[in-house]
Design a protein around this nucleic acid. Structure first.
Length: 234
DNA sequence: ATGCGGACCTGTTAGC
DNA sequence: TGCTAACAGGTCCGCA
């Protein structure tokens, strides 16, 4: 974690994002923050005493403090003086899932010849950003595609279902504030409610909400994977 | 080159 | 009831 000394006196110019990396652009460079799975940023003041797992404070002249908290320490903070999109961590990221570049044609090009399971393929940020384990499970359920299917064997029509399902799942999740399993809170300090709309994630052995068949839980890429053997046959 | 598995970390949950 | 072990998650890296 290479946090620069030289930020003193610098004005924050803009805040943006690429994938799950947050970009705080200053005149002389960019602070890159990833919240991992449990990180959060809050704007506080000096009267707010640091709590457990508060790791970094950035002080601003207006008495505000940007405070980085991360219980599980999966987050990270980086500094770059180049164009941030050229940074090692960002330069080879795949397209944004809600952007124009995420199409069936794109997925087709990237997936041919690949034997990798479609779920692992979708979770690879170099293919497409933003799809973590929970959403990968949900996307494949909605697209009616079995998570273990080789990415390279999926035809365009079915890739199109993945595209549509991805955009639906992410948009719905965003609209209700994300998915809170344990301690996630959004920038407003509120939990997300998408966990109430999950069809398969965390529901192994329970009945499919569409066909009532018993959902199957397996491990793929060391991650919990749940699907309906009837709705997702291949 | 591809793709898999290990590592990171710690709060919560399951099991003895 | 208390303690220990397993588990979860996003991403990078190293190895086959």
């Amino acid at each position: 974690m290479e946090v620069p000394d030289s930020l003193r006196g610098q004005q924050l110019q803009s805040i943006s994002r690429r994938g799950k990396y947050l970009l705080f652009r200053f005149e002389i460079g960019t602070l890159i923050v990833h919240l991992g799975m449990s990180g959060s940023l809050r704007v506080v003041t000096s009267v707010d005493q640091p709590r457990t797992h508060d790791h970094i404070d950035w002080y601003f002249q207006n008495e505000r403090i940007l405070r980085f908290n991360d219980p599980r320490r999966f987050g990270s903070v980086h500094w770059t003086e180049q164009s941030p999109l050229r940074h090692k961590l960002l330069r080879s990221l795949g397209p944004e899932p809600l952007g124009e570049g995420f199409t069936a044609k794109y997925l087709y090009q990237r997936s041919r010849q690949k034997t990798q399971a479609i779920k692992n393929f979708l979770m690879d940020s170099h293919i497409v950003v933003g799809i973590g384990n929970i959403y990968a499970n949900e996307v494949l359920f909605r697209a009616r595609i079995k998570p273990t299917t080789a990415a390279g064997s999926i035809a365009t029509v079915r890739l199109n279902r993945i595209i549509t399902a991805t955009k639906e799942v992410l948009n719905e999740a965003i609209s209700v504030g994300g998915t809170t399993l344990r301690d996630f809170v959004g920038s407003n300090g509120e939990p997300g409610y998408f966990s109430q709309e999950l069809f398969v994630y965390g529901r192994a052995s329970q009945p499919c909400l569409v066909c009532n068949h018993k959902l199957k839980g397996i491990v793929l890429g060391q991650r919990q994977t749940v699907y309906c053997p009837r709705c997702q046959r291949r």
